[in-house]
Amino acid sequence: MAVVTAEVRNTVVKRHRHPAAHGEAPFGFAMIALSVLFVAVFTAIPIVASLGLSFFSWDVISTPEFVGLENYQRLLHDGPVLKSFGVTLGMAVAIVVLQLVLGLGLAVLVNQRRLIWVRTAFRTAFYLPLLASTAAVSIFMGYLFDYKFGVVNYYLGLLGIPNVPWLTSGFAAATTIVLIAVWQQVGFTFVLFVASLMSVPTDVLEAAQIDGAGPLRTLFRIKVPLISPTILFAAVVALINAMQLFDQPYIMTKGGPGSATTTVTISMYQKGFQNLQFGYGSAIAIVLLAAILVITGLQFLAARKLVFYR
């Protein structure tokens, strides 16, 4: 017994030994150096710079002027910007829910196909929109859903249905943008769920079948709990993406009609790059970052109860 314990301890020590002990450190550091540099230059430094800039008033041309918390105070009383937070949150929740439900539904359906080529074909088909440029997709969709000459309204017209103001009425525009975003992004959650469903142990599924569980019961009582870590991951990533929604509303509606589709990132762009209030734009960006962090934190808190780790 003592020998076994010693062997286990040795194994643990070996497994926990720092790779540097084997002289692998330089190679390891070199491998991650580029990534670290990339993240530092394009993510960390801009975030720190934005935080710094949010305490200044700066129009690009004149010298920045320190204003302390003025930009944040202004934000608290800026109705249109606060509304854009509400619009963003509403659209983000809709996008995430639809993306998860549709992604899971499609994954379950595809997973039932036994032929590998059928699965591959579906995976490719659902993943393809994700590879297309969002800007190009938005321009294209703008034409499809155009009120006056859009193909969608043309075919609805053939069925005797009057033109729908897809992008020119507040609620319709927000809904259209949500649907387009979901159409383009659902491939991501779909692929994750397909892979995750394939990893569900067959013996568990067989046991459930023997116990008389039907397909729905198997799905909700066995498959969903077993892939819940993937669902959490997909929800977090989808929400972070959705909170930064910009291309689709900016290209298709310019944030309109009125401010019905003005997301926080559009507000930030308008204040910073169009109205030359870079300090205020940075303050909006920082508050958005904080909001995303808080919501993500809440998701992880909820996950403690809802996610099942095997």
């Binding site: 103001p165 020119t168 009425s169 507040g170 509606t253 310019k254 944030g255 309109g256 009609p257 009125g258 401010s259 019905a260 003005t262 308008q270 169009q274 109205n275 030359l276």
Partner: peptide, 20 residues
């Protein structure tokens, strides 16, 4: 001099008026 802000607001308020 604040043309950009004017243009942004004009576009937004015009679409608001037409849709509402």
């Amino acid at each position: 001099p604040y043309y950009n802000a004017l243009a942004t607001a004009l576009n937004q308020r015009t679409t608001e008026a037409i849709s509402s």
